[in-house]
Structures are given as structure tokens and as C-alpha cells.
Amino acid sequence: MDTVKDESNNSERNNYINNPIDTLALPQFEEVQLSPLQPAYYKIVLFNIGIVYLLLAIGAGCGIYFISEIQSYWYVPVAFIVFTLCISLFISRISFKNKGFAFRTHDVMYRSGAIAITTIIIPYNRVQHVALHEGFLSRKLGLATIEIFTAGGDSSDVKIPGLEKEHAEKIKKLLVGKVLNQDKETNED
């Protein structure tokens, strides 16, 4: 494949013009309006937090009930759980609001995070494959998660949760189409 590439490069080199690129005139990713996740997705987030804290509360309750030494200090674990619960809810709300995605002509963007905001951008011609996940609860709410894999390792994979099922299917088709197109193009080269 590489020599084939080299040849095409050679032919290109003959009528090769190297104009300076105005980097300021390039499309700017930061100006793209990101689409937010489906509001229903926040219910799933809340549900997950609820489960974790329910388990914690049960554990603490058992501890207080069965161990008599700590019974008089019952307010310590309770206060701790309530405090962390409040923080979790606060952070989950912020992080939900920060999450957003956009599909441009040549790449996909995903923004997330609460304390630090991370924007990750994957060009379509570097996508390896796409997966669509549906959890039990998200299926009930008609939601799905799209996961986009690259060869750059786990940390460069993007997982976009809280998409409408139909929308997710469409996105998957779009991405698969782009990936296949890429393959075809390179093969034809």
C-alpha cells in the first residue's frame, strides 16, 4: 500500500503547489454548537447514584443497628452520606450540563467533565469501529450509547451516552458509512 501511496505522492509532487494555509481561516471547532444529551438521560444518572447511595445507606444502617458501640455516633455516617450525596448530585448535574456532542463533516466532537472540561475530537478517517450500547434502564427510556473506537488506545475512545435510540442508530449508520467509504477509497488508491 505504501509504495502505491508513494507513487500517487510522486505524481502529485509534479504539480505540487504549496500555498500557505491561513490557520485562522480554518474551521474552528470551538465555535461549533454542541447538541446536549437527552434530558431523560439524567434520570439514568440519578438512578445510578441512587443505587450506590442506597447500598451505602443499607451498609451504614446495618452497622449502626448491629454494632452497639457506634450507635450513639449514628449522626457521623449519616452526615457523611448526606454530604457526599449532595456533592455527587451537584457534580452530576454540572457534568450532565457540560456534556455535548457534534458531528461535523470530517470529525466527531464530544465534550464532558465537571471540574475539568475535556473536548475530544476524532476524525472519521481514524475511526476503527463503532458500537451501540443499550442498558436495561436506557432501553425503557428509549436511549442508547454510541461508542467510537480509534487505534489510539482506550483513553481516546469516545462514549456518547443519552442519545435517542433512533438518533443513535442513524449516527452509527453515518459513522459506519464514513469508515467504509474510507476503506474503499484507500483500496481504490
Binding site: K5, Q28, H106, I121, N125, R126, D189
Partner: peptide, 18 residues
């Protein structure tokens, strides 16, 4: 951000394989 825009432009227009 400018650099990222530039690199994305390069990746998306290149005909070189990674």
C-alpha cells in the same frame, strides 16, 4: 485551539495512512 484546528485539518485532508 488554533493548533488543534490545524492538526485536524491536516489529519482530515491527508492522503497518508497512519
Amino acid at each position: 485551539k488554533q493548533l488543534v484546528n490545524y492538526w485536524l485539518y491536516q489529519v482530515e485532508t491527508t492522503d497518508k495512512n497512519w
